[in-house]
Design a protein around this nucleic acid. Sequence first.
DNA 1: CAATAACCTATTGACACAGTAGGTAAATGG
DNA 2: CCATTTACCTACTGTGTCAATAGGTTATTG
Lengths: 131, 131
Amino acid sequence: MISTKGRYALRVMIDIAQNSDGGYIPLKDIAERQEISKKYLEIIVKDMVAGGLLKGASGKGGGYKLCRKPDKYSVGEILELMEGSMSSVVCLADKKFKCPRKKSCETLPMWQEYDEMVHDFFYGKKLSDLI
Amino acid sequence: MISTKGRYALRVMIDIAQNSDGGYIPLKDIAERQEISKKYLEIIVKDMVAGGLLKGASGKGGGYKLCRKPDKYSVGEILELMEGSMSSVVCLADKKFKCPRKKSCETLPMWQEYDEMVHDFFYGKKLSDLI
DNA sequence: CAATAACCTATTGACACAGTAGGTAAATGG
DNA sequence: CCATTTACCTACTGTGTCAATAGGTTATTG
């Protein structure tokens, strides 16, 4: 299940794409338009800046803006940054997770096939496709 | 992320399919073969009986067995029973969740498309495909 | 220099996850 | 008929994540 972090992040990206003329958009405006607590958005947007999705600027006239054009962002990239991992099972999500049944596991191939499908779906979708 | 409930349930089904000649299989045997705590499996198997996936029998010679042939179970059915809902977002998982932005939401169509893809994937896969 | 806005640390309540513990009820093989 | 086997039942618990809230500091500019 995609959490609010992933969903809100996507909405922030869309909001900026729709409301910016290339300048910075204050978080206050985004929060009001999207009806999401500004305080909570701060946390989310912080991760987005750290992850290279947004650029922030302090002070008057500051705010956030996109680093690239909307068609250069994939939805998968955004979700993966916010949700941590898109993997369906621990066995595949955590590299440190050493499963002793790996070789004989009857379900692992299915999870792999599933993860690949999900990956293709979200990385095929671009931010520009949502606007 | 699929939890242990869904993953273990699937493994129990496969284990029974592989080790039963039509008779009941004691949970003790399944737990040992699968290296999962029997106590924890009890909880999972209880839900599976309630959900019509397995049939249980008490006493000596008792245990669990499948209700149908492996090709009559879809993986989706098993996972949905154990995980509650396969939906990607609250907006679609919870019927009582009334989103005010439903009509104008730019992301909803994507979640719907995604859910449909996931549904088709897991309901298309049969238990017999995993053996 | 005051207003604006990002940025930072800490805390919280609710809930789910992954079990553990200890017992009762039912069925059967000897 | 009874001891053994097995399912079935209720309750509890530690750990962690989710979704925020609270209150502050730093940077920038009109």
